[in-house]
Write a protein that binds this DNA or RNA. Sequence first.
DNA 1: TTTATATATCGTAATATTGCAATATTATAA
DNA 2: TTATAATATTGCAATATTACGATATATAAA
Lengths: 107, 107
Amino acid sequence: MGASKSGSFSDKDNEMATLFKALSHPARIAIVDYLLKVDTCICGDIVNELPLAQPTISQHLAALKNANIIKGTIEGTAICYCINPDTIDKIENHFGVIRHKLKNKCC
Amino acid sequence: MGASKSGSFSDKDNEMATLFKALSHPARIAIVDYLLKVDTCICGDIVNELPLAQPTISQHLAALKNANIIKGTIEGTAICYCINPDTIDKIENHFGVIRHKLKNKCC
DNA sequence: TTTATATATCGTAATATTGCAATATTATAA
DNA sequence: TTATAATATTGCAATATTACGATATATAAA
């Protein structure tokens, strides 16, 4: 074998793992950073910003969109991508819970 | 080609991507959850808890340790793994910054 | 309609991850 | 020393990811 046994884990664990996988590549981190920096968020800008070819960036954008980390709306010939605050909240909340549970522990 | 062009991105982006990659598998999410749930954290327990073979879990633990998400101290024949609060803080802070930047934006 | 621009998809090669049996290592107990 | 227990490493097969050239699609402008 070799593929992930995701069927053996809880829905919650799989959901969080999927979110983190979407953020597990420096290009996708850079895309999120860039979307936060600019006001108009057009994919063409990102192609000029990152050292990757257009199809590769399109793939990374699709990965982020698929994980609901960004959402895109068609704007003429371009597509305006932006960050989905709900997903950011969900991830941040996950770590808030972890930190809270850690409060009463030590090693 | 095909491998990640991590050399082309900033240290910060690579660092965050490495952290998220360590959390991008449901087994590793489950391990972190389990370490939060129990007081004595011994690898043998995790082997009984998850539907994976011992070498596989050992690998996942190594991945988490390598990313500084957990740390282990030798305790006789066993190893006591526990969560590294500093790394949790670092990740949580990353999302805090994102949410703060999002405050003044909308799509 | 034709052309140009922006983005997506296909096909494919290179590389990385996942999982486990077998085996090695390390520390305690007898 | 010899066994036993816990964890790590090795080797390898199955699968997934990454990257990009070529091509397709879709919208806008001429």
